[in-house]
Design a protein around this nucleic acid. Structure first.
Lengths: 343, 343
DNA sequence: GTGAAAGCGCTAACAA
DNA sequence: TTGTTAGCGCTTTCAC
């Protein structure tokens, strides 16, 4: 690989200073009153020598890399893949590239990744965290790092954050099931309990049922560890089946859980909606044309991404985000399909 | 944000040289025979002053960033999302972070992204390209950029590449349909024609049918532009339906096409497999428990990712990849489920 | 309108 | 076993 041409090369071969070349290359020529003729000469040479700026040197000098980090628990999860796609898109439109990290719900890994990204001087960070509290992020925000938390957030945290109305979503799901005459419903979520999204969805669901004096027995509130979703759900459903304690409906708290539950019900030959109703949090393309079609609480993925990116960009550009706008909570919709309607 | 501590700060406050600190920080202390005592003093100070290395300065100096780029046409597509997750995982295990770019099949954007990543001095690049030839990549490889193409590759290209046996996959699908007594089958792919994966799958399929003297009429070889998949498939299927020229089976050439076709057949109330058989390229979790379950040609996503990353790492580490191992082609499997079996 | 020079934080050759 | 020094490519201040 032959040596790359640098600013100095251009300058030398043109008999001008590096300053001049730098200004032209960065389109600051006009602002500094550099003659159009000179500018054209520089540009010409840039083309001729096939000059490509060293972004590393520039970033090193200016402290700005035009790179942002995106940290999620699982990039192959449809929800996060869509988030990633949207954010990548906005970022590109605004001259940024995106470094993506997938934590597999591992807090240590998450912290290491954040550390590394900071060392790499990313301009900002969007995180869906697996941590159980906001202190770590509060400190980052205090330290001046542009940061937005998405999806999973904490009460009273200092960092700007974007989430959806998980509690409300839970209520909507519950009320819909109530209209179907359900009063025995199970919840399937993931542990640990500090994952706010899951907990809020559960609470919302329970609160709506409680208004009708329906209480969910503990054995129907299932929380499976991330790595053991399948095993745990299977065990529980099988047990219900054998004991004859099958609920009339299940509310699954994210798309992975919905899929896995669907799969297991299929294996157990339990028919939806004839024998059990099902509604899940997170919509997935397939739900619209599987048999039966699957009801879901739909998150506004595009709005989450856009809002998060905008808030990040504002911070990067030094704009203050007013205290009261720190926490953005977006509404969710219900998509009622066949799986949750009694027939 | 207070000024960050640098190597120099540590060195000064300890009364030693920057070199010394640098060596200790990079764990080269022992190799250079720096006394354990001194090493401990340095580490102590590092902790005390909360020193965080500036990876940008280091990369600038060494030319190594421990970052690789991954460019795909759509990160929200399940296939690429899984690839991304796997590669991110291997990369992390090997001390690399991953910058992800999504091109939306836009060649100009793809080239700009590659340009930008090179400017940012990424150590290597893995690409699933939307381009129609290998010249662009041949030049990158000649220029010494560690590079691996995946998924979509070109005959005789110079860059190392990993793909699956698309032709063979097409043949397997065709032969399976033949066992079901099918002789009227349609193909649904995306355009443009230079997308090698799609074209090869079609060719394989056709070749197997041809051996039984079955030719596919042109109107059953559908290729829809990326942005108009839904419209085009719908138009065609509706036309077949109305004209009474519906094929007995459809082979969809990627998971998006399979999903969309499924969706449209659902809307048209055409039953699978009673009225038409369906098999798709790419397996998706849902296919195993939708009703009917969907047959698919399954790609070894994990092997593709691992192989591609290994080949990239070898190049980064300066290992020659023997000419004959430049093109890795992995076998595919068929998953026969309900959608492609006559009942 | 243009140029000289300093310096960002780090590493690697060479010296001692 | 440790230190000195040069310089990676760029931007920025200040000077002319």
């Amino acid at each position: 690989m032959t040596k790359k041409t640098s600013l100095a090369d251009i300058a030398k071969s043109l008999g001008v200073s590096k300053t001049l070349v730098s200004l032209v290359v960065n389109n600051k020529g006009d602002a500094h009153g550099i003659s159009l003729e000179t500018q054209e000469r520089v540009r010409e040479k840039v083309r001729e020598l096939n000059y490509e700026p060293n972004a590393l040197a520039r970033g090193f000098r200016t402290g700005k890399t035009n790179t942002i980090g995106l940290i999620v628990s699982d990039i192959s999860n449809r929800f996060f893949a869509r988030i990633a796609r949207n954010i990548e898109d906005y970022a590109w439109q605004n001259g940024y590239t995106v470094v993506i990290c997938s934590t597999e719900e591992n807090v240590t890994k998450e912290k290491q990744q954040i550390r590394l990204l900071r060392d790499k001087k990313i301009d900002g960070l969007i995180v869906s965290t697996s941590q159980d509290g906001s202190e770590f992020f509060d400190r980052l925000t205090e330290a001046g790092l542009p940061l937005v938390l998405i999806d999973r957030v904490f009460e009273g945290m200092k960092s700007p954050n974007v989430s959806v109305d998980n509690f409300g979503g839970g209520r909507i799901a519950a009320r819909h099931l109530l209209t179907q005459g359900i009063n025995k419903a199970a919840l399937i979520g993931i542990s640990p309990d500090h994952i706010s999204t899951i907990t809020d969805r559960m609470k919302g669901f329970e609160s709506a049922l409680l208004e009708e004096n329906i209480e969910i027995p503990a054995e129907w509130k299932i929380r499976a560890p991330f790595e053991e979703i399948e095993v745990v759900i299977k065990e529980n459903l099988q047990r219900f089946y054998q004991q004859g304690t099958m609920p009339e409906a299940i509310f699954t708290l994210n798309n992975n859980l919905t899929s896995t539950t669907l799969q297991i019900l299929h294996k157990l030959s339990i028919r939806i909606p004839e024998e059990i109703l099902l509604i899940g949090f997170d919509d997935v393309l397939y739900y619209g044309f599987t048999r039966p079609t699957i009801s879901a609480i739909d998150q506004p993925v595009d709005k989450i991404s856009k809002k998060a990116f905008d808030m990040l960009l504002d911070q990067i550009n030094g704009k203050e985000i007013p205290e009261k706008l720190h926490s953005v909570i977006l509404p969710v919709d219900i998509l009622i399909r066949e799986s949750s309607v009694k027939i």
